[in-house]
Write a protein that binds this DNA or RNA. Structure first.
Lengths: 145, 145, 145, 145
DNA sequence: TTTT
DNA sequence: TTTT
């Protein structure tokens, strides 16, 4: 409505469990690592090629964050739409870093779970445990908020 | 068609003239710097806020690259759709850099010019000159290809 | 969020002035007739072809309805997104009729004006007059609400 | 690229098996009946409401038609994008009819299967049988091509 | 790091 | 007519 459009739309799979953090005010923020892939046949060699792209998705919208936390897991298929937003910061070694994320925040945000319904899907996540991710993905994890 | 979707859609304005480069094979690649903005009223203070986001758009599709080169200029309004793609590289000082771009390459790419028709719009750009931009937006310029 | 997506996105021009109606409760509903066109070269004959498609757009969202009423006119270029919705009714002669419309209602709706800024654009429409359209596009006009 | 955009995007389920027809030239055209639904809580009564919308999707693109014919079935979940196109015709009783369809034809078309992989999914449909639908959906079926 |  |  502001005269411009900024949207990123993904249909892909989670590379790991959602990462759940809490702000100092107690608001939950959920971060996803989503893979999309495209494949094509190389015109010259004829071989099948695949390119995988990893996207960092940050969910500020409370309702969507809760859904993501409770129902998405490593491997889950998801459809989502948010805004592109870039952040710049200086890391511990004084180097300037830059990251682009897909932010699900306002009303235009979309998150649709595409996993087939399983019984477990409706069980809420226990308060303790579950959302600590395995510690992999250090590069993305190290991005300050 | 590969079972995933990776799309970024922008409706915004160019921050500077398109940047036109040629690969060693003579293929033209056009890079755009596109601004989108969103504005909202701060709930606590009530003041009007605006956030501008800059996007780097790289056009590999020949037809769209030609249109961009010939008809887009600093300030032009454009609607476009492409794929998100991230690149990592090591800069001169040995530091690892990372950039996310919107790539217009395949069939799903879209580029629509939204400027009102002017006489000049149909005049092709001269081979010499034109695409040196004013030197603003330095951060994006410094990203190597 | 209900597990499904239903969206229509248009970038096109108004074929006539917006049509403004009021419900019995006094709520304004604005209807647009929007043209999109595609052109292609016929593979067999080589001639240039064009196909124009007319879309009926109904705006229930108050904010967007107000913008449409005040700033859109015959010929205006607009970008919008809404939901597809079909209606069936029986006309005066007892025949069953069917129409599909694009509804701008909820939070996911988008309406962006793409006309260049003119002074007149900011002048509100007078209460009397203005929204009688030229009488073209009769087919769409005859659809009852 | 023609200066306008006309897109419909659905994420929904098939209400019946795909309908496969052949043109006189032997080209296969596949028609889908896709449901999307939205649900909301009525503000005044507080009850849960649901609205289901049925969409007619016609696939002219050969590759996508083949995928739809082989892998989609009643109940399948699918993500797709095509163009809105309306047709008018006179039925047997001389009445003028009107229908809006989502056409998957050109390069911008998208079709993604969202069913979990089953063994059967990769088995091609036998030449005989399978695609005769139950004869329900008479209204849509009766639309001439 | 996912999925096909 | 689907699905949740």
């Amino acid at each position: 409505m502001a005269g411009s459009i900024n949207e990123a739309t993904l249909l892909g799979n989670l590379g790991k469990d959602p990462d759940v953090r809490k702000t100092q005010e107690g608001k939950e923020i959920v971060t996803l690592s989503v893979a999309t892939s495209e494949s094509w046949r190389d015109k010259s060699t004829g071989e099948r090629k695949e390119r995988v792209e990893w996207h960092r998705v940050v969910i500020f919208n409370d309702a969507l964050a809760g859904i993501a936390r409770d129902f998405l897991r490593k491997g889950s298929k998801v459809y989502l739409r948010g805004q592109l937003q870039s952040r710049k910061w200086v890391d511990q070694s004084g180097q300037e870093k830059y990251a682009t994320e897909i932010i699900l925040q306002g009303f235009n945000s979309v998150l649709v779970l595409l996993d087939p319904k399983r019984e477990e899907a409706s069980r809420p996540v226990s308060e303790t445990g579950t959302s600590q991710s395995a510690g992999d993905n250090d590069d993305l994890d190290s991005i300050p908020f």
